[in-house]
Design a protein around this nucleic acid. Structure first.
Lengths: 198, 198
DNA sequence: ATCGTTTCCGGACAGGTTGTCCATTAACGT
DNA sequence: ACGTTAATGGACAACCTGTCCGGAAACGAT
């Protein structure tokens, strides 16, 4: 009643084939047949699982997001200050484990929907954090939490992408988390060793 | 000897048709024939100008980037502190004028190349600014200028996208420039009215 | 206004990809 | 072992692509 072993195998194979091939040739260049061939699955079978290429990518992204959510769940409750330290670190570790998939998503491969799903989800979470802060804080925020969240996500995605794309050995996740926290707290002027005048 | 009036007309028509149609239906759903039909140009003519759809989008993006560069050129020389105030404002005004094209690019439409062209160009410029600062500054930067630049671009693109996608009347470019400057200088903790503890 | 050149047109072409169908075979869970 | 469910392979029309061509039209320069 749970789930047929065959469907599990097929879906996994399609997922892996997709990620591998996008890394090799880029999403746009891929044919459904390329994917099924690599996955060692009949082309007709593909269509009994997904509407099309985009649909496959979307499903894979959804799975990833759900898995990430399950990891963040327990951590979000503990730290009331929001997305500091532990949750951020969990994200980075997850990205390291699923490196290729993260790379492919952050590059904006596909119709752009996967990246949009990822960022929108992130914006929702982070905006909630900023709003939460605003509540239990005396001062009103200087900038709309929604905008702040988009800024946060934009910066973090860009840096994460740089981190994941690096050829050489990567900086440890802990180091990157420190770096990002520093940026959030003090801004880029501070980070560049520059004294703001204005 | 300059350029044939016909080619100018054709290229412009193709460019406008592309932008309009991507806004309406999204890049992926477009056919070369859709574009030529909207542009009122024969399909064969399209191929005497561009290799394919992606090529057209790439060319359009190149033009935009060049135009932007020409506007930034004179300003970059004046302000030695780098990308503060005027150049940022010029960027925002340019984005406002070419709103739809900017939107389409920032959404990551196409094969993602246009967005990559845009961000890579931006990273180059901004990284140069951070390096320049590092030189004529006593303290060494706390974070690699390259990373700092990617963070800058990620944040700014995200906020710009939010700004350009807004349905209602937008905040004036001057206001947004202030906001972004504040983020660069003081970080998001400051912006959220939150006192960094660590 | 004419003339040589360049671009545009429109129609046709083969090749590849898509998404759907179906009858048959194989694997599954119980 | 049995009934059910999924995978297979092959065939199908529809569509889109990129390329080619001869003829018509627009161009810039004289």
């Amino acid at each position: 009643m749970a789930e047929d072993r065959r469907t599990r195998r097929t879906r996994r194979a399609l997922r892996d084939a997709l990620v591998a091939l996008v890394m090799e040739r880029g999403y746009a260049a891929l044919t459904v047949e390329d994917i099924t061939e690599r996955a060692d699955v009949a082309r007709a079978t593909f269509y009994s699982h997904c509407r099309d290429k985009d649909d496959l990518f979307t499903r894979v992204t959804t799975e990833l997001l759900q898995e990430l959510g399950e990891r963040l769940q327990p951590l979000a409750d503990k730290s009331d200050t929001g997305f500091t330290g532990e949750p951020l670190l969990a994200l980075l570790h997850h990205a390291e484990e699923e490196r290729d998939l993260y790379r492919v998503i952050l590059r904006g491969e596909g119709d752009g929907k996967p990246l949009r799903m990822f960022t929108e989800e992130a914006v929702r979470r982070i905006a909630a954090v900023f709003r939460h802060r605003a509540e239990q804080n005396h001062r009103a925020p200087r900038i709309d939490p929604e905008v702040l969240a988009r800024a946060w996500v934009g910066e973090h995605c860009a840096v994460m992408q740089w981190w994941l794309e690096g050829e050489a050995e990567r900086m440890p996740a802990e180091g990157l988390a420190e770096l990002l926290l520093g940026l959030s707290k003090h801004g880029r002027y501070w980070a560049s060793g520059f004294d703001p005048v204005g």
